[in-house]
């Protein structure tokens, strides 16, 4: 698994390749926090290359969304496959996050 950070205008995009689970969630959390502390306020997490997410991964997303909102920013999600969409629906986290079907749509939404 790996996390890649890219810039798209004023949006900071994190690509999650592989899993987002208990074993690597802190790595993503620290990368996002580093960007927030560097001034990022619009953050997009792109799951196009993500295989699965566990409860720890979900918890990190919830935590980061709170942290970004406290700075006046927003964290949004894109490219959930059918299984990931089901995961967010089961946990009702689809009501907590703004989720777009593609990166392009997500970038337009900010």
């Amino acid at each position: 698994m790996s996390f890649t950070v890219k810039k798209a205008g004023d949006v900071t995009v994190f690509e999650v390749e592989g899993t987002l689970i208990v074993g690597n969630r802190q790595e993503l959390k620290q990368k996002v926090i580093d960007e927030i502390e560097g001034g990022a306020r619009k953050v997009l997490v792109d799951f196009e290359k993500t295989t699965y997410i566990d409860s720890s991964g979900l918890g990190v997303l919830v935590s980061l969304a709170k942290k970004i909102r406290e700075t006046g920013g927003d964290l949004r999600l894109a490219n959930l496959n059918d299984d990931l969409q089901t995961l967010f629906e089961l946990t009702k986290l689809d009501t907590l996050f703004q989720i777009s079907e593609s990166r392009g749509r997500a970038l337009e939404s900010f």
């Binding site: 566990d54 409860s55 720890s56 979900l58 918890g59 990190v60 919830v62 935590s63 709170k66 995961l87 089961l90 946990t91 009702k92 986290l93 009501t95 907590l96």
Partner: peptide
Amino acid sequence: DPTTSDNLGREDGRGLFLMRR
């Protein structure tokens, strides 16, 4: 139940729920 309004914003508490679902 992590889907209640009280629990939705919690970072933890979804593991056993997911296993059972």
